[in-house]
Design a protein around this nucleic acid. Sequence first.
DNA 1: TAGCGCCCGTGACAGTTGTCATGAGCAGAT
DNA 2: ATCTGCTCATGACAACTGTCACGGGCGCTA
Lengths: 203, 203
Amino acid sequence: MTTIRVLLAEDQAMIREALAALLSFEDDIEVVAQVGRGDEVITATNASSPDVALLDIEMPGMDGLAAAAELHAKHPDTKIVILTTFGRPGYLRRAMESGVSGFIVKDSPADKLAATIRQVRDGQRVIDPDLAAAALAEGTSPLTPRERDVLAACTDGKTIQQIAQAVYLSEGTVRNYLSACIGKTGARNRAEACRIAEERGWL
Amino acid sequence: MTTIRVLLAEDQAMIREALAALLSFEDDIEVVAQVGRGDEVITATNASSPDVALLDIEMPGMDGLAAAAELHAKHPDTKIVILTTFGRPGYLRRAMESGVSGFIVKDSPADKLAATIRQVRDGQRVIDPDLAAAALAEGTSPLTPRERDVLAACTDGKTIQQIAQAVYLSEGTVRNYLSACIGKTGARNRAEACRIAEERGWL
DNA sequence: TAGCGCCCGTGACAGTTGTCATGAGCAGAT
DNA sequence: ATCTGCTCATGACAACTGTCACGGGCGCTA
């Protein structure tokens, strides 16, 4: 059995190095690269050719799921494991579409990490069963692309005016789209709709 | 030099064990207890009498800052270090009021962790200089206690009605309080006020 | 005791937001 | 060729939200 070469992508330096410390205890795993930004994943992969890339989702530059998609396109042999704080079904769905082999949350016990790395290296898929069930139960987004855009632009208590400017639409149109979003999410106002859609991974 | 006994409180199991792995490389530091909930900090301290308690803020049961306050009251000799994702000035202020000796963010390099633990054990205080400056620049909260309550109850796009029920006030009064909050934060609506106050640690 | 600030409430008003009807242009499917 | 659904827009209306003025009660301080 040869050692598994691992790329570690996680923006918080202390956590990244702590995870590296954790993996250093495994004889068959070697961390060959560490990056703190999503847009550094590709170049680091080119340089170090890892067997498995371990990606956080929340990262500056490019989020982990986007990085996963690009990585999978350019290096289909590199297995990808998403390691995230939030087990949102929407994340899982996007991850699956991005060619990811493993999806684990940071709540899991530590030994799950090395176990997952070994499993995906062997060609298996590793997904938290509860999460998978939740993702299936939720179904796919009922929002049209434009509704999604508008709803995504309305975080943080923005005004209709501000949203309209951000999306280059008239205020009336924005109101209409938001009204549709509110209806489809079952919310009572746009802030709640925004939160619900976010949770379900519809954004 | 005797070894430093450390208690580790962090809700995400994988991160917690990774941090323990990181600290295991330090010869003079020993992790004598690990907990995943804020309300387990006290009992674990009673059982293992650590020199330093390393607390995350976001934890179920009781948040790290509340745990810090209680810990400081009951075990004044145990030094406390807050380790958090978010370097919000408001957190820092609350931490200082809770008798904390050190405050570091997870963005810091990994060696900062052990260094901080040693420094606080030696009686020093360790605070990120940038954060300290930001906290001082922001000043203290201009919100009255009741305004704070109302604003805190209005997260996630709640209706005025829902807030009023949650805080046992008439809707008119809620509107008045929120209006005051909006004025004091310089926001344009309650959602933005909520976000701003949250960021500044006024909640 | 008078003044001050916080608490809680009401009522009136203007501005913003959510709903609905309507219509035109444009794609893809039958 | 027609139907359907998405996009974008306008206008009207109702509901909700934010602002303001006002009043009474409470506790603290000068």
